[in-house]
Nucleic acid binder design. Structure first.
Lengths: 337, 337
DNA sequence: CTGAAAGCGCTAACAC
DNA sequence: GTGTTAGCGCTTTCAG
């Protein structure tokens, strides 16, 4: 293993000079710099991460906590994780992957050990038990998602409230008066994951404003459950002419079932989805949708965290404005029977 | 920040004693141990990761390199990643997440800096440019996937050759003589990702042995492309009575299209999928399938890597035997026309 | 613009 | 069964 001292010797300079060449924290003559850089290359030197962390009390690692559950919005999470990892690299950070499993202990461990300089948490619940640890003094953190109380926290998320409103607004404008909402699995609501409830808020309040009747039903993914849910909805509200779907694994089943029942999309019923772009585009009907900006959220989260780590801190809640893209699944409400 | 020295002082023992209580590398009297543990708790001590890594030249971190592409088998990768992370924790390791983006440089960086003690690589190509770095001396590594030449490497993967064979065998036994294979996207084959080619091998050789005619077509996910692919297949081989699908995002489109064309599954055509269990179970028809054992692969990979790190090394290729689960999508071939 | 040297917090001989 | 101590490789004052 090549050490900084060896590089120094090889280049005929002192250790500190090599260190400063690396960090750029003081000016170095062009000649010296070149000699040192040459030695570094020749010897294949890589600074030792542990030593560096010990001496500087910075690990250049950020921790990313992802939920354990693989049952929900998996592609979104993956996309976020990848965006976080690549963005982090461009800022000189590596990413430590933590699963929610350990809960608050993981936060304590990582922060306490100096394994990471800061952390990004996904899948935040409204009353998340990890929040107290983040609020106080601890290391900087950024949440992807919005808890009930955001004081002292930095959060990034899609504005799900506005998203819900936007969906209803779109449908109302097309003349729909009876809208059904296919939501996430019941467990998601029970767990009080913020985004689901906020979407619902947005849907409801806009529905009130637009004179739209709303029926909300959580739904596990898959055909079997979707079939039951749909039957129930059409039973309770036979006049339903539009659906808002916030559940990736319910999208395709819904479309198939509608088709089977001879309900044409968008002539007889409209469908608006809240989902990643790929899902919207690859579905059997190109879906009018509000896209979940996974990459953007990941990038944002890292950039805010890095800013905080650099002392350019700012406690702030960033809500990304939703954008509704009209595709082939939504159209004017059919004439009343 | 609480240091080991402070714990030692608080407990009235020496630093080394605290260290040994923590590592268990020498015997400690029950009394001392209790006193130390109490002090650790009371002071909220967490060993500093950097210092520990520096002194012991072990970081207790393993690196996981995942592919950048989010277009392919995303849920599988996510499942593997999570299995890796949780298994690693049970062995006292944390996981560093690397994207394939940096390529071989990432390997050099991580290994050279001692950031991680070993690494797990996913999405290995047949002639992967990272392999030379892993083969030689370097830190221990485990591949998930199988390159062309495995000498000096440890690999874990589903036995895709056997998987292909198993699918054909199943269909042949049911009397099918014309089988079409819906494969991964063309890019996957062009990139020479091993698993796709090995599956094809298995399919083909078993087809020869069983007197089955095989037609293989790569396919991007989604409805539009699947429709084109299917039309072409039925045009070339109108007698096709069975499909093997190895492409998650083609499964549902295929089923929907067959339905639209009035071909009943499994009465008119059989479908066998190679996919994660969830996909097989949640599809519109419960699919006869060979499951991709993502969790098992992740777990295995970590356990082998940890074994290597502990000196219980073993260069070895582990191929997990495929298991075909018969569900509702396969049945006897229809009587010949 | 460059050197010298004091730690950072922990591990692992080496002593007893 | 426990204490002492010499580093691990780097960063960062303090000097010049």
């Amino acid at each position: 293993m090549v050490t900084l001292a060896e590089v120094a010797q090889h280049a005929g300079v002192s250790a500190s000079t090599v260190s400063y060449v690396l960090s750029g924290k003081r000016s170095i003559s062009a000649t010296t710099r070149r000699r040192v850089e040459e030695s570094i290359r020749r010897l294949g030197y890589h600074p030792n991460a542990g030593a560096r962390a010990l001496a500087s009390s910075r690990s250049n690692v950020i921790a990313l906590m992802i939920p354990l559950r693989t049952d929900m919005y998996v592609p979104v999470m993956m996309e976020i994780a990848i965006a976080v990892a690549t963005t982090a690299r461009t800022h000189g950070y590596d990413v430590l992957l933590l699963t929610g499993e350990e809960g608050p202990d993981a936060v304590r461990r990582v922060v306490g050990s100096g394994l990471a300089d800061g952390m990004i948490l996904m899948d935040v619940e409204l009353e998340d038990e990890r929040l107290p640890l983040l609020r106080g003094d601890g290391r900087p953190s950024v949440l992807i998602g919005l808890p009930a109380d955001t004081t002292g926290l930095t959060c990034v998320d899609l504005d799900f409230r506005a998203t819900g409103a936007l969906c209803v607004e779109h449908l109302a404008a097309l003349g729909h008066r009876d809208v059904a909402v296919i939501g996430e699995a019941p467990a998601v609501y029970e767990r009080h994951t913020g985004f689901a409830e906020r979407t619902l808020d947005g849907l409801r309040s806009q529905a009130r404003d637009s004179g739209v009747r709303l029926l909300h039903r959580p739904c596990e993914g898959g055909y079997a459950t979707m079939a039951v849910t749909l039957a129930r909805i059409l039973d309770e509200r036979p006049g339903t002419t539009a659906f808002v779907v916030q559940n990736e694994s319910a999208v395709e089943p819904l479309l198939a079932l509608l088709r089977q029942q001879g309900r044409a999309v968008p002539e007889d019923v409209s469908v608006v989805a809240i989902c990643p772009e790929q899902v919207a585009v690859q579905a059997s009907v190109r879906l009018t949708s509000v896209v979940i900006p996974a990459q953007e959220m990941g990038r944002y989260a890292v950039e805010h965290l890095v800013a905080k780590l650099d002392g350019r801190g700012d406690e702030e809640v960033v809500l990304i404005a939703p954008e509704l893209t009209v595709r082939a699944s939504s159209g004017p409400a059919p004439a009343r029977a």
